[in-house]
């Protein structure tokens, strides 16, 4: 059985795409067959760290939604981004063409199609893991991704708005019976007391905090154009991502 892992946050810019790309890569390096779907059709981002250029993308998730192609046609093998041997890793990007984004926003779509797509992808590519990079906030498609997940990774930054919003999402995920929920605190300032932060957050949400990632200069410099866990494995941020990965890969 393939495991579906959704990475979500209540607000934008929390580091979902970055974490998704790294977790998927670590799973592939552990020999798993992996696919990543960018369901953030409004503001796609995960093609960047995998170096998937616009020129290579003939079909995107949008075209599957519009019935123009089967989902596996929109899956691109990006294993080369790992730079070393591992299980294959496929990416289903959302179209970054303005006209495509405009169309999907204007027309909307039946989110049940997404579920069909995920299941077909798992079957066709014989996947062990399907990672879903989501749009921030609560809407029909993010709720669907949460509902069908075996693991939900919720990212939050240590600030008041994220604390409040995450409380809502945690509550909803509990009502959807998600089997495994993990919290990841990202962009923690180095001057904070990480242990205290972790303890307080776990107590408030009653959900385990799998990692606390510090605000990391190298991540800013990388500017979404690479995989931090592979480029700088020695950094605290990379080590913390490794902890999340272990929890996800555990049978």
């Amino acid at each position: 059985m393939a495991k579906i892992v959704s990475i979500h946050s209540y607000r934008g810019g929390t580091g979902k795409s970055n974490l998704t790309a790294n977790l998927a890569s670590l799973a592939a390096l552990a020999g798993k067959r992996v696919a990543v779907v960018d369901t953030d059709v409004q503001s796609p981002g995960i093609h960047m760290p995998f170096g998937l250029g616009e020129d290579r993308v003939e079909f995107a998730l949008n075209h599957f939604i519009w019935g123009e192609c089967p989902i596996e046609k929109a899956a691109y093998d990006v294993s080369a981004a790992l730079g070393r041997p591992g299980g294959p890793i496929y990416l289903v990007p959302s179209s970054i063409k303005i006209s495509d984004i405009g169309r999907i926003l204007k027309e909307g779509y039946d989110v049940r199609l997404l579920n069909d797509g995920f299941q077909a992808l798992i079957e066709k590519l014989n996947l062990d893991f399907l990672f879903i990079d989501t749009h921030p906030g609560v809407n029909e498609e993010t709720l669907l991704s949460i509902a069908i997940s075996d693991t939900l990774v919720l990212i939050l930054r240590p600030d008041q708005q994220d604390f409040q919003g995450t409380a809502v999402t945690v509550e909803l995920a509990k009502k959807l019976d998600v089997p495994q929920m993990l919290l990841v605190i990202n962009k923690a300032l180095p001057s904070m007391n990480f242990d205290e932060l972790r303890a307080k957050v776990e107590k408030i949400y009653n959900v385990p905090v799998a990692a606390v990632l510090p605000l990391t200069t190298e991540l800013v410099q990388l500017a979404s154009s690479g995989l931090i866990s592979l480029v700088h494995p020695e950094l605290e941020a990379s080590r913390e991502i490794g902890k999340v990965s272990e929890k996800i890969l555990a049978p």
Partner: peptide, 29 residues
């Protein structure tokens, strides 16, 4: 933050959660 008062406005949270969970879409899901 070091003072680290994580304050959740429970009433506001309940309101938002209820609004979503009572929708037909959520129930179906």
């Amino acid at each position: 933050i070091v003072d680290l008062k994580i304050q959740i406005d429970e009433a506001k949270k309940e309101r938002q959660v209820t609004e979503i969970t009572e929708s037909d879409y959520f129930k179906g899901l």
